Simulated scan of single mutants.
Amino acid sequence: MRRCLWVSFTGFILLGFSDRPQLERVLFVVLLIFYLLTLLGNTTIIALSLLDPHLQTPMYFFLSNLSFLDLCYTTSTVPQLLVHLRGADKSISFAGCVAQLFVALGLGGTECILLGVMAFDRYAAVCRPLHYTVIMHPRLCALMASASWFIGFANSSLQTVLIFLVPLCGRNKIHHFFCEVTPLLKLACVDTTGNENEIFFASVIILLIPVALITFSYGQIVRAVLRIKSATGQRKAFGTCGSHLTVVSLFYGSAIYAYVQPSNNYSQDQGKFISLFYTIVTPMANPFIYTLRNKDVTGAMKKECPNDKPSWIVLNAGLELMTPRS
């Protein structure tokens, strides 16, 4: 019986924002600009981390991982959304939907864990400065980054299989702009309480445990920074850690709202806009928040592109738009 339910259609319809045609036109322009800024900012961070020896440190190793992850995460949803915003055909194949859910869940879970790893890196830098290079040696950094990717995609594999085992009874209209967990479960024609409990449990592990580790790390960091007698040293430490905390707040705040809440409280419209936030706004803002005010990065940028004035102007303009002056 379940096999018949799956072969009754070959794909899904992503309704997205089709009930608001005027909003679609505005969103197309805004999201296109945001996506181009995301590509520009994150690609710049990756390139500079590879080219400049001064940026080949554990901090920038994890930042380049985060930038690559954000590039993949945004690209897994936004190009398709832009096409759907400009055309009447809003379909996605069954295989495409499975792949999109798998990739989005895997990259989202990886980012959750990677942000926790980056908090440990900041803890080691501030609280154990004399032993920092010993603690954060390249092999450990590579191991922690690899573990983040593995755990993220292992969780994604399990959740994707469980979600697509649920019979849909021929329903194929998804009230979202990409294949997301909660809208897919709402298509089911059977009780999904077990699936929702499993997703909630996995979300607690992937989201809240790293948050607890980040909170503990920054508790220790604050204690260490307050013992620094130099005001300049305190500002530098808080500046570096403040960037990470800003990114953590943006990403975890939206992700926890989207995943760690009862399904009966889920609003389709709110879910779409929250998803827009963590799939496009946060990946675009990350490089600006983290590094484009950083003297090491701006110095490396000037050194690597001394004559490339147009690119520098574009980057600086994006920087001025995205980062408030202190």
Rank of each mutant, 00 (worst) to 15 (best):
A147V: 13
W149A: 13
I151P: 07
G152T: 03
F153N: 13
F153V: 15
A154S: 13
A154P: 00
N155I: 08
N155Q: 05
S156G: 07
S157Q: 01
S157W: 03
L158S: 12
T160Q: 05
V161F: 14
F164T: 02
F164E: 08
L165A: 10
P167W: 00
L168M: 12
C169G: 15
C169N: 13
G170F: 07
N172S: 14
N172G: 12
N172E: 12
K173Q: 14
I174R: 01
H175L: 11
H176A: 15
F177C: 05
F178A: 08
C179L: 11
E180V: 05
V181R: 09
L184P: 00
L185E: 04
K186I: 08
K186R: 13
A188L: 09
D191K: 02
G194H: 07
G194I: 12
N195V: 14
N195I: 15
E198S: 02
I199P: 01
I199S: 14
F200R: 09
F200I: 10
F200G: 06
A202T: 09
A202K: 06
S203Q: 02
I205M: 11
I205C: 14
I205G: 05
I206A: 15
L207F: 11
V211F: 10
V211L: 15
A212T: 06
A212C: 08
L213M: 14
I214P: 01
I214T: 07
I214W: 08
T215F: 14
T215D: 06
F216W: 15
F216T: 12
S217C: 09
S217N: 07
S217R: 01
Y218S: 04
I221T: 03
I221V: 12
I221Y: 09
V222H: 14
A224I: 11
V225I: 15
L226F: 10
R227G: 00
K229E: 15
A231H: 08
A231M: 09
A231W: 13
G233H: 03
G233Y: 03
Q234C: 11
R235I: 09
K236V: 14
A237P: 01
G239L: 09
T240F: 02
G242I: 00
H244R: 01
H244N: 06
L245N: 06
T246W: 02
V248H: 06
V248T: 09
S249G: 03
S249E: 01
L250E: 01
Y252Q: 07
G253H: 03
G253V: 08
I256L: 02
I256R: 00
Y257M: 14
Q261T: 09
P262C: 09
N264W: 08
N264S: 10
